[in-house]
């Protein structure tokens, strides 16, 4: 265990209506075993004692699975460590004396609510548009009625591991939500249970994604690089192909 000192440049913005800007703080004697969010906790305790308002940031489970936390650190969504959410990023990954620029996700689809907190309800609306199998409680047959190839089930899982944090959007130069949307489309269409509604699902979800004013995909692969669950861009390719087929089917 060792201690480091850091300079933080943090985006502060009172609410969605007012303009924001960077404030500079020092984070002193930071234990390198701390998580990034614990470092922010320490800074917030200090700000409170100084009579200032602490930095607002979303967080909950602090074990990398709820998808609530996230910020851009020195231009990288969730910081420098691959496959890691902010809460699982530990301070041993930073050097003494470093300056860290900390910003919220930036996208038209994610309006800022305060400081590092953004409104990601667009993701919920994309799921509501079709990101499910429309089975009602009680309708299910025995779980073993339909065997599922292990390969398909594993691929479905890889896509289903998405935590909906929004890092893919934040990392994309076009603020595209293709990886998020594709992960759900691909998760469900890899399973026999999800095939029935697959054509309608992909059309509805893509339409909603466009309505939410997310940008288009231009194959930068930044989303995959930033994704804390390392979800592959191959799912985007699959979604595009499903979308084309579904559109063709709808016409003919």
């Amino acid at each position: 265990m060792s201690k480091i000192n850091l300079t933080l440049k943090v985006w502060r913005q009172k609410n969605g209506r007012e303009k924001g800007g960077f404030e500079t703080y020092t984070a002193k004697d930071i234990d390198t075993d701390m998580s990034f969010l614990e470092m922010l906790d320490v800074v917030n305790e200090q700000l409170t004692h100084e009579g200032k308002e602490p930095i607002a940031f979303d967080h909950d489970c602090r074990e990398g699975v709820c998808g609530m936390c996230g910020a851009v650190i020195n231009g990288q969504a969730h910081g420098p460590l691959k496959g890691t959410t902010l809460c699982q990023l530990h301070m041993r990954n930073f050097r003494n004396g470093e300056t860290l620029v900390i910003e919220p996700w930036r996208s038209r689809g994610f309006p800022i609510l305060k400081d590092l907190v953004v409104d990601r309800s667009a993701f919920d609306r994309i799921i509501a548009a079709g990101g499910y199998i429309s089975v009602k409680t009680g309708q299910a047959p025995d779980a073993h009625a339909v065997p599922v190839r292990k390969e398909d089930s594993d691929t479905a899982f890889d896509a289903a591991a998405c935590i909906g944090c929004g890092a893919c959007v934040a990392a994309c130069p076009n603020a595209s939500a293709m990886l998020f949307t594709a992960a759900k489309v691909s998760h469900l269409s890899h399973l026999p249970q999800g095939q029935v509604e697959a054509p309608e699902r992909v059309i509805k979800m893509v339409e909603q994604m466009d309505k939410e004013r997310f940008g288009n995909c231009s194959n930068e692969y930044e989303c995959e690089a930033a994704c804390p669950k390392e979800i592959s861009v191959e799912h985007i390719a699959r979604m595009n192909s499903e979308y084309r087929q579904a559109k063709w089917k709808a016409k003919h």
Partner: peptide
């Protein structure tokens, strides 16, 4: 378990 499988929960399989 039946319900969750029908919803597309990717449980571990053999």
């Amino acid at each position: 378990i039946d319900q969750c499988v029908a919803q597309g929960v990717p449980f571990a399989r053999e």
